[in-house]
Design a protein around this nucleic acid. Structure first.
Length: 268
DNA sequence: GTGTCATGCGTAT
DNA sequence: TACGCCTGACACG
């Protein structure tokens, strides 16, 4: 489930286990063999996330850049370690912990300048930039007529939001996905930013995306909700809105589906 | 078993 | 706008 909260959570949990340790690195699948050989036996200084990107900083300035794409997954393993699956792109291990990475769209060794170039392409990250993000968001959307639903997936605009958070944040703020970005009032963008901060933080803490409010699900607590009860709009086309009962609808924006409630998120 | 789709993104056309 | 990349879950026969 790789939206931004997943990468921040990975940085935190993996860092707790591996930061400061001497690391054995390998690439059973083979596509990162050269990179793994370079960092093998060196010390992992820190793991940092920004948007959907993850950076492993090793001593000597070497950085492994990981982007999970649509399919990438981490597994955190403890002894006895299972046989590494042959599609493991990268294994980072100590005697007590192992990170297993499979299916990433990017796993590459970068020098610090290249890392900066990746970061420069990214907009504010709700988890890292809670304070000034709203202002940066408002500035970057001021002259853009693309739908707000398209803007939220553009990582230059906001770093870390994916298709689930897009649908859910638009619902929570009551915005129709096709409203032109430059027509969204600054107060609404401000509220949208605050919601992004709250929701991504909650996702980082819990490891799952739960946006529904207790009042809309019979006052049950977040942890008591099963799959299919945690979201308002994402993938719920044809089902009743949890707030007003209207059927959720969907459409395509730039090749990605977006879902919304036509009543709670009216077209203007 | 096969086919489809997916929480993403870069590049080519 | 289309395609390629990377994997896993699920629907269907």
């Amino acid at each position: 489930m790789p939206e931004g909260h997943v990468l921040h959570r990975a940085a935190r949990l993996q860092g707790k286990r591996l930061a400061g340790r001497t690391i054995r690195a390998a690439s059973p699948q083979g596509r990162f063999s050269a990179g793994a050989a370079e960092i093998d036996g060196t010390t992992l200084e820190a793991i940092e996330a920004r948007g959907k990107h993850l950076f492993y900083r090793f001593d000597g300035g070497r950085v492994v850049h990981v982007h999970l794409g649509l399919f990438g997954k981490f597994r955190v393993q403890t002894p006895p370690f299972p046989d590494p699956s042959p599609n493991a792109r990268l294994l980072l291990s100590t005697d007590t912990d192992r990170i297993h990475l499979a299916g990433p769209t990017t796993c590459a060794l970068l020098d610090p300048d290249a890392v900066d170039r990746v970061i420069e392409r990214l907009g504010p990250d709700p988890i890292l930039d809670p304070v000034d993000g709203a202002e940066r968001l408002t500035r970057s959307l001021a002259r853009r007529r693309i739908p707000i639903g398209a803007a939220l997936l553009d990582q230059k605009v906001v770093a870390g939001i994916g298709n689930v958070y897009r649908a859910e944040l638009l619902f929570l703020v009551g915005l129709h996905p096709f409203v032109p970005a430059n027509e969204v009032e600054p107060e609404v963008l401000d509220q949208l930013w605050k919601l992004s901060v709250d929701e991504l933080r909650a996702g980082e803490r819990s490891g799952r995306i739960v946006t529904v409010r207790p009042a809309d699900v019979g006052e049950r607590t977040r942890s008591a909700l099963g799959r299919g009860e945690r979201l308002y709009a994402y993938k719920r086309q044809g089902r009743a809105c949890r707030r007003c009962g209207t059927d959720i609808v969907s459409a395509d924006i730039d090749g990605r589906n977006v879902w919304w409630c036509p009543r709670c998120q009216p077209e203007r």
